[in-house]
């Protein structure tokens, strides 16, 4: 199953401002059929990696190869052709609020294919059936719970049968049942489509259950990586702190600051 490389990041660096790099040096690869988790604290640039893979932003240094092609060298049309083979699930689903569930899932089919309305209807119902929400097809997004929204977004993401799925924080803010449902769906759909997936998350336990490989990012670099079993057994301080959820460790609880005492006394002057 682990065949050719689908995504290859080499010495990737990126920053919105020149002197404040978000990513300093990222090396990772995803092979066909794999589910890879990208973990790290909040605001460490995990989501930026997905934006770089999708070609929404361009790397300041290094190389992004998706399906073997260099994303930086693509023009707009090539970029769009590449994105057609990509499915992305945003943090809170990002469903189109003015369209019904059905129309949301039909959106990529209507915009990017020339299929007839009957064909689209069948495809949409199939995708909704896969996430268990065929019965909700006529609801509006605001009538859905968080977990349902994400399942609909998942159905929309797989509408064009992508070869690579990107998930941005798919587990955030879900109750345990919804969380397990999404986790299982991600695994099942990945295997059913024969696709590869990258999950950006900080939910360690759910990830360890479903993924094939994990990368830990801190300060713009990959600090640790391994299979779920290796991660569980790891003695590396950062991984230990992250997996066990300890407050103090190599990642400090306190933001670097002046001396506490002198800061408090400063107000009296």
């Amino acid at each position: 199953m682990t065949g050719q490389t689908v995504v290859q990041l080499t010495d990737l660096a990126f920053g919105y401002e020149r002197d404040r790099p978000v990513l300093a040096q990222i090396n990772m690869s995803v092979r066909a059929g794999q589910i890879v988790a990208l973990m790290g604290g909040s605001g460490c640039g995990k989501t930026t990696v997905l934006r770089l893979i999708g070609g929404v932003v361009r790397a300041t240094a290094g190389e992004v190869r998706v399906f073997g092609d260099d994303v930086a060298a693509m023009d707009q049309a090539e970029l769009y052709r590449m994105r057609e083979r990509l499915g992305m699930l945003f943090q809170f689903g990002a469903l189109f609020t003015d369209l019904t569930v059905f129309d949301n899932v039909a959106f990529p089919l209507r915009e990017r294919t020339n299929l007839g309305e009957r064909m689209i209807r069948d495809l949409v119902l199939m995708k909704l059936q896969a996430v268990g929400l065929r019965g909700a097809s006529q609801l509006m997004p605001h009538q859905l719970s968080g977990g349902m929204s994400r399942r609909v977004a998942l159905a929309r993401g797989i509408a064009l049968d992508p070869q690579l799925m990107l998930f941005d924080e798919p587990f955030t803010g879900l109750d345990p049942i919804s969380l397990a449902t999404i986790g299982t769906l991600v695994r099942e759909l990945n295997d059913a489509l024969g696709a590869s997936s990258i999950i950006v998350t900080h939910d360690v336990q759910e990830s360890l259950n479903i993924v094939d490989y994990l990368y830990f990012i801190a300060a713009g670099r990959v600090v640790a990586q391994g299979t779920p079993d290796e991660v569980r057994a790891s003695e590396e301080p950062f991984v230990r702190q992250f997996v066990r959820g300890e407050v103090e460790g190599v990642v400090p609880f306190h933001q670097p600051a002046n001396d506490y005492r002198s800061d408090l006394l400063a107000a009296d002057r």
Partner: peptide, 17 residues
């Protein structure tokens, strides 16, 4: 603005629209 804030525009872009 709200479509942008809720990433609907980004989602569209990622769907090659």
């Amino acid at each position: 603005g709200l479509m942008k804030a809720t990433e609907q525009l980004a989602a569209m872009e990622m769907m090659a629209v």
